[in-house]
């Protein structure tokens, strides 16, 4: 007997990941750490999607020979979120790759990974006026 609902726990974890990611986006200065934090938001959302398709005691959504259709309809997991989350993971990975590549270029250019040093340019008017 499972005392706590698995789906509910997963949803809470997803929410926690998103909140941690948002905190990281604001408070962390190191760019690599910031990017890791930002990918937490992405992963939290992915976890949220995948937990939607969860069904306690469910079966994989493939109709095998000999299965009762009514039983299958009641017990199979919802397959759409699983299909969606794959695409979402791929997108997240490519975004992550581009961000890390950019931070490599910037590290070579500035010799620092601190966001406040390399990503903070004063606007033109404050600079030169």
């Amino acid at each position: 007997m499972i005392l706590l609902d698995t789906q509910l726990l997963t949803l809470f974890t997803a929410g926690a990941l998103i909140v941690i990611g948002i905190f990281a986006a604001i408070y962390i200065d190191n760019i690599i750490k910031k990017i890791v934090g930002l990918s937490f938001i992405e992963e939290g959302v992915n976890l949220f999607i995948i937990s939607l398709g969860y069904k306690s005691g469910g079966v994989i959504p493939i109709l095998l020979p000999g299965m009762n259709i009514k039983w299958f309809a009641n017990n199979s997991a919802y397959p759409l979120p699983q299909a969606l989350v794959l695409t979402s993971i791929v997108i997240g990975a490519s975004t992550l790759a581009v961000m890390l590549a950019l931070s490599m270029v910037l590290y070579k250019k500035h010799g620092s990974l601190s966001a406040s040093k390399i990503l903070n340019h004063e606007s033109d008017m404050g600079d030169e006026l």
Binding site: I18, I41, L119
Partner: peptide, 26 residues
Amino acid sequence: YETALKYMILSSIGGPILLLGITILL
């Protein structure tokens, strides 16, 4: 490059939030 990274950082806040909204509708 700096601008590109800034845009990506903001995009990785905006994008997942949009996806979360879509998922709730799902």
